[in-house]
């Protein structure tokens, strides 16, 4: 990976579900400078949607809180960090298991699995009562 940093974008939203589509579109527009394929762009949008939805549904279950999305583009990859100051995750390894959900029948428990399989790297840092930071990177292959 070429780690020369090119640019940065930071977005702060409230944890309202209407912002899911907005955030996907904003990150996709920022990522466009890497000239991703339609498939790569779809992967990025899907992963962002998962991370932001988790903040809205799980971090702030009955309040409205702040979500920060920070994107950095490098020569050939993008790093996306999604941060909340909500409830936190007691056992991150368990939360990342496929089908694990505390959300009931409305949720599939596949959010982290989707983020993992669509991005190249996924890191989750969390502390109960303090918040959660999800950091994902994806390499965008240069095209002719």
């Amino acid at each position: 990976m070429n780690m020369k940093k090119h640019d940065k974008m930071k977005l702060e939203i409230e944890s309202k579900s209407i912002n899911e589509g907005f955030t996907r579109a904003a990150v996709a527009a920022f990522a466009a400078r890497l000239d991703p394929s339609i498939e790569e762009l779809g992967d990025i949008k899907t992963a962002v949607s998962e991370a932001v939805t988790n903040c809205i549904v799980h971090a702030y279950p009955d309040t409205i809180g702040s979500i920060q999305i920070t994107c950095r583009v490098f020569e050939d990859y993008i790093e996306i960090k999604v941060r909340d100051y909500g409830r936190g995750i007691a056992d991150v390894a368990r939360a990342r298991e496929p089908m694990y959900t505390t959300g009931g029948a409305d949720r599939s428990g596949m959010g982290f699995t989707v983020m993992e399989s669509f991005m190249d790297e996924l890191r989750v840092r969390s502390k109960e009562g303090v918040g959660t930071t999800v950091t994902m990177t994806k390499r965008v292959k240069p095209r002719k």
Partner: peptide, 13 residues
């Protein structure tokens, strides 16, 4: 036009 894991819950449900 777009689906994330929320759509999975719809299909599975």
């Amino acid at each position: 036009r777009f689906m994330d894991s929320s759509g999975l819950a719809l299909v599975i449900g």
